[in-house]
Write a protein that binds this DNA or RNA. Structure first.
Length: 499
RNA sequence: GCGCCAGUAGCUCAGUCGGUAGAGCAACGGACUUUUAAUCCGAUGGUCGAAGGUUCGAGUCCUUCCUGGCGCACCA
């Protein structure tokens, strides 16, 4: 405790004063609450004159000699507490004045009234100090939605999210919405007969996505384990096991850079449905996103970063090569020639429009790079991008009519990649070849090539039903639905360097 | 990893040409029994992100480093 800090020392002195009169507030264990602030404000007509008990943090103290007005916030919101010497007694009133600070947590018992100025209030007859706040809260001031001197320093807000949450109510609102979104997703899937499961976060072979993993070590087994980059291969093993509809909502970990749309740990929804193809999954995606939006907004028209977005289904479906051709004026999909010629042509287009590509990138990766860096930001309204080249999609099923393409799609909204989905490759012979192609890419220097998972191929050899799978980045969905430009604003404790 | 920007009182911010740091709010003392950014009077509060350097003198100029934001690269 920094007793050398005068502001903390003052508060410790007040704690001592409070303890002398009423006992140490930190020994109190219980305060029975009858109402929350919003219930009293909203239900004033019925509650006027009745006695209530509520508890919360003090955000404003307005003293006026022998009367005082406090703003008390609980989880539901704000209510004014009115107290004067007549309601609590002269001695108690003076004592409270000496002991109570901004940020203290108190229990209040009193009558529901409306003040002369017309504000619904609780006229306190008893105030109990439940927790002494020993640090000055950076609450600032507020009037008509305008705020002054409130904590805004972005670093301090992330590092001390607990302060951010009680100081900035709109931050709370984002996380309340996040909870409703996840709830809605579970409801949508449960109603359709999906089973929620949990699969390993610690994996001996990382798989299911192209990304660099975090590596950790298990002492007793004396072996390296990877924090999962995706649950995909385990969930599909469950289809082999006979579950027909499964999903998991959980954390993935990817050892990559941090920016406004990437956090090293992030939350992913993955669903797998036997006997469904990617068309069925597109319908499911629309249902998941629109239900979540309705749960938060009650309508399907939202604003993101100043753009009007309408989520009303059905969302248009556009082929990857077509939309890249539209944006660049060069139809790479229609290009003939062998692999090397196609790759060289794609490389030229990338160079023309200023998209950087790795020397190790093949044709598919270059097209993907052009799409991600040049095209995707231009897609504002919800759109399914479909038909990805097979070399980009080592776990996706080929189109029967065009085997160099897969039955894969990505939902794009407001320039954000909201997910990834495909008809699942269930042919163990083809899967083995795809893993081998990935291994060749790893040799070529691609740190994100997918490692060979022999047991997964074994599982497919027993037989996995045809199935459609979906992955949705929950954090990005929350960003979209809550109009937040940074993933850090939808993650309670984003990854930061230590102070 | 590269570039740009930022870090000054508990909070929000000023700080000119290099001359020994200022405001508002909070906190502190006082007045005030229906206020609401309450008001009024008074007196406080600083390792200027860190370390070096230039200079008679550095919040200010230079170097390195730390932390964060944004953009690029990588990625979902």
């Amino acid at each position: 405790m920094h007793t050398d800090d005068p502001l903390i020392a003052q508060r410790l002195a007040k704690l001592e004063l409070a303890t002398q009169r009423d006992g140490d507030p930190f020994w109190r264990t219980r305060y029975d609450v009858t109402h929350h602030a919003a219930e009293i404000v909203d239900g004033f007509e019925a509650l006027e004159g009745t006695s209530v008990r509520l508890a919360g943090r003090l955000h404003t103290l307005r003293g006026k000699g022998k009367a005082a007005f406090w703003d008390l916030y609980d989880q539901s919101g704000r209510i004014q507490i009115f107290l004067n010497v007549d309601s609590v007694g002269e001695e108690a009133f003076r004592h409270l004045g000496e002991v109570i600070d901004l940020g203290d947590i108190v229990g209040v018992e009193g009558q529901v009234i409306r003040t002369r100025m017309g504000e619904v209030s609780v006229h306190a007859s008893a105030v109990t100090l439940l927790t002494k706040s020993l640090r000055p809260p950076p609450l600032g001031k507020e009037k008509d939605g305008e705020t002054w001197n409130r904590l805004t320093d972005i670093e301090a807000r992330y590092r001390r999210r607990y302060v951010d949450l009680f100081v900035n109510r709109d931050v709370r609102a984002v996380f309340e919405a996040r909870s409703r979104i996840v709830q809605s997703i579970r409801r949508t899937l449960d109603e359709r007969g999906f089973l929620e499961v949990e699969t390993p976060m610690l994996q001996p072979i990382q798989g299911g996505a192209a990304a660099r993993p975090f590596i950790t070590h298990h002492n007793a087994l004396d072996m390296e384990l990877y924090l999962r980059i995706a649950p995909e291969l385990y969930l599909k093993r469950l289809l082999v096991g006979g579950f027909e509809k499964v999903y998991e909502i959980n954390r993935n970990f990817r050892n990559e850079g941090i920016d406004t749309s990437h956090n090293p740990e992030f939350t992913m929804l993955e669903t797998y449905e036997a006997y469904a193809d990617y068309n069925v999954v597109m319908d499911l995606t629309e249902a998941l996103v629109t239900n979540a939006c309705l749960a938060v907004h009650g309508k399907l028209q939202i604003e993101f970063d100043g753009q009007e977005i309408d989520l009303t289904p059905p969302w248009p479906r556009k082929k990857l090569y077509d939309i890249v051709a539209e944006a660049t004026g060069q139809d790479l999909g229609a290009m003939g020639g062998d692999e090397a010629e196609r790759e060289a042509a794609a490389r030229r287009v990338a160079e023309q429009i200023g998209v950087y590509v790795q020397p190790s990138d093949g044709f598919g990766q270059i097209v993907d790079a052009i799409f991600k860096k040049y095209v995707i930001a231009k897609i504002v309204q919800p759109t399914f991008i479909i038909e990805y080249p097979v070399e980009l999609s080592p776990l996706a099923k080929r189109r029967p009519d065009k085997p160099e393409l897969t039955e894969r799609f990505q939902p794009i909204i407001a320039g954000l990649e909201m997910g990834n989905a495909f008809s699942e490759l269930n042919n163990p012979i083809d899967q083995r070849e795809r893993f081998e192609a990935q291994a060749r890419r790893a040799q070529r220097g691609d740190a994100e090539a997918m490692p060979y998972d022999e047991d997964y191929v074994t599982a497919l050899e027993y037989g996995m039903p045809p199935a459609g799978g979906l992955g949705v980045g929950i954090d990005r969905l929350v960003m979209l639905l809550c109009d937040q430009r940074s993933i850090r604003d939808v993650i309670l404790f984003p990854t930061m360097r230590p102070d």
